[in-house]
């Protein structure tokens, strides 16, 4: 029953407000665009952000916690996107607190989702507490969302350590694939030395780069209108997320990584490095 290609990908960061939910929605929607049946799961219990960004907040009746506590079954809680039939969301509860998540419950729900979906994207809350730990616990791969500034890079470094030690795969001595996604990248600020450059961040984190998402007004417009960036009109952020998904799916081979990175940087008019 389990789809062999079924993949659980956690979108995590440690630090808050770096763009995890934006990224979960954008990458989930782009995977669906490409024909992969995808569900985005909101682990941010108590805040419930994902449904707003995906524009389905009015359709939430049952949520993740209801399913964990067996008050509802999965099919009752899953919301199918109106724009793309491959895209689903499992919303978080607004009324419960994060202690409502249990490891057994999360494991069971994710195992059920694996039977239905090719990709399961887990939108992690900030921090390294219960909600965040459970969001990454059963992941096969991780997207580490990082802003080009020191505190975000530190927290990402820490979360990579957590991924290496506290995931089920790590405990079974299996590798957990990690992808670095730099978001809110603002060239001007990098040049003025207010932000770290791509190379600086990569040097510290030492994991493969999935993509670079520019600081963009398209993101704000998208979240205000409840449309994931990749389902919205053409924009720099949309292109960057599409590129990241191509890398995630292995369409852009490792050997071409250098090539596409410079392509993106040129696209963003990023010709210079930060002053040393």
């Amino acid at each position: 029953m389990v789809k062999s290609e079924s993949k659980i990908i956690v979108v995590t960061s440690g630090k808050g407000g770096v763009g995890k939910t934006t990224t979960s929605a954008a990458i989930g929607a782009e995977l669906a665009n490409r024909g992969h049946k995808t569900v985005v799961v909101d682990f941010d219990i108590g805040l419930r952000n994902l449904d707003l960004i995906m524009g389905c907040e009015r359709r939430v009746i049952f949520d993740f916690v209801n399913v964990i506590q067996s008050d509802a079954n999965l099919s009752q809680a899953l919301i199918k996107d109106k724009r793309n039939e491959n895209l689903f969301i499992l919303p978080a509860s607004q009324t419960r607190d994060k202690d409502a998540l249990t490891a057994e419950g999360v494991e069971r729900v994710l195992a059920d989702l694996r039977k239905e979906f090719a990709f399961i994207i887990c939108d992690s809350p900030a921090g390294i507490e219960r909600g965040a730990l459970l969001a990454l616990r059963y992941a096969d791969e991780a997207i580490i969302v990082t802003n080009p500034e020191v505190s975000s890079v530190r927290d990402s470094d820490r979360i990579i350590g957590v991924l290496n030690s506290r995931t089920q795969r790590a405990e079974q001595n299996l590798e957990i694939k990690k992808h670095l996604l730099l978001t809110r990248y603002a060239q001007g600020r990098v040049q003025r030395g207010e932000m770290l450059s791509v190379e600086d961040v990569q040097e510290i984190l030492a994991i493969p780069l999935l993509g670079i998402i520019p600081e963009s007004t398209a993101v704000l417009n998208a979240s205000n209108s409840g449309v994931p960036v990749t389902l919205g009109p053409v924009s720099d952020a949309k292109r960057a997320y599409q590129q990241a998904v191509a890398v995630l799916l292995g369409e852009e081979s490792q050997s071409r990584q250098k090539g596409w990175k410079s392509k993106i940087l040129e696209g963003l008019k990023l010709f210079t490095r930060s002053p040393a």
């Binding site: 470094d157 820490r158 350590g161 290496n164 030492a206």
Partner: peptide, 8 residues
């Protein structure tokens, strides 16, 4: 052999 991460 692996990087030693913040907090470790």
């Amino acid at each position: 052999t692996e990087p030693v991460r913040s907090g470790q």
